[in-house]
């Protein structure tokens, strides 16, 4: 039997429109959220924290992350985390992907923005100007909170999109190169196919067939977007899932191997190739 980490869906704790802008203080006072936030949990929506004050921390994937004054932290969906009990202040934006991605352009943004590719990113402001922008956008978004009005929701959406873009700009500094629209939508389709089929289908040609492009073309586009080949990208996805299961479930190694569609021997071999340790050692070292 496994002890499951609870996964909360956006529907149950997030505002039905898929967006909330609240301060830490308000968050602590919301009963439905309080019950969840101080325990290990994961949720199906994104967080954007803006920390104010010196003594701030957050537990992400079992690690205590210390955060400095004025830092911005983007937390991806489905990442296991836990709030720390401290006197930290700040603002939080909670949003679902369905809220932000109402147009193709914004879906493309989600699929190519580097923030959405890692478990979490900390953005340290390098200039006064950036802090000024954070201030302006957050106060703007706090003012526009009548979610029953469509135009106010649109304003919130535009502001959130801008906030993420300036955060992305601040943390990458290098210019992100956009491909053509064709490769955008292909990558996003590839990602969703992968989510659905990675357990049973591990060959690039399956995905290329589904997407109706040649294997070569798919790999080219993946290399351009992520810097690794399509095959490596698929393996990476499986490896991350394996690590997740090892760390947070009580499944045996054999069950985990089964779960991701390998036999046990191959699973151990696969894992060693990616991590230089065996699954058993990885689990022990935590």
């Amino acid at each position: 039997m496994s002890k499951q980490i609870p996964r909360h869906r956006a529907k149950t704790i997030l505002h039905p429109k898929g967006i909330e802008v609240i301060s830490f203080e308000e968050m602590y006072q919301a009963k439905s959220k309080k019950r969840i936030m101080f325990n290990l949990h994961r949720v199906s929506f994104y967080h954007l924290f803006w920390f104010k004050g010196e003594d701030c921390s957050l537990h992400i994937k079992g690690e205590k992350i210390n955060i400095e004054n004025n830092n911005l932290l983007f937390l991806n969906k489905d990442v296991i985390h836990q709030y720390s009990l401290n006197t930290c202040e700040g603002e939080i934006i909670l949003f679902a992907s369905s809220f932000l991605g109402n147009t193709q352009e914004k879906i493309n943004f989600i699929n190519t923005c580097s923030l959405f590719k890692s478990d979490y990113s900390i953005i340290r402001p390098r200039s006064e100007h950036f802090v000024f922008l954070l201030n302006t956008y957050f106060s703007f978004m706090k003012r526009k909170t009548d979610k029953s009005k469509d135009h106010e929701l649109s304003i919130l959406r535009n502001n959130l999109h801008n906030l993420l873009m300036i955060a992305e700009r601040e943390c990458s500094q290098q210019i992100i190169k956009y491909g053509t629209t064709f490769s955008f939508s292909l990558i996003s389709q590839f990602n969703s196919l992968l989510d659905e089929y990675y357990k049973t289908q591990k060959q690039v040609n399956f995905y290329a067939d589904e997407l109706d492009v040649s294997e070569r073309k798919l790999s080219q586009i993946v290399v351009k977007a992520f810097g690794i080949t399509a095959k490596e990208y698929i393996n990476e996805k499986i490896f991350i899932e394996a690590k997740r299961l090892l760390k947070y479930s009580t499944f045996s190694q054999k069950e985990i191997a089964n779960e991701i569609g390998f036999d046990l021997t191959y699973f151990v071999k696969f894992f060693k190739k990616h991590n230089d340790t065996t699954p058993g050692q990885f689990r022990k070292n935590g």
């Binding site: 649109s154 304003i155 502001n159 873009m165 700009r169 992100i176 956009y178």
Partner: peptide, 19 residues
């Protein structure tokens, strides 16, 4: 200028029009 600039400006313009 960077690849975000047109999108950021358009969002701001759109907000202005919405308001």
């Amino acid at each position: 200028y960077d690849s975000f600039q047109p999108a950021i400006l358009l969002n701001l313009l759109s907000n202005f029009l919405l308001l």
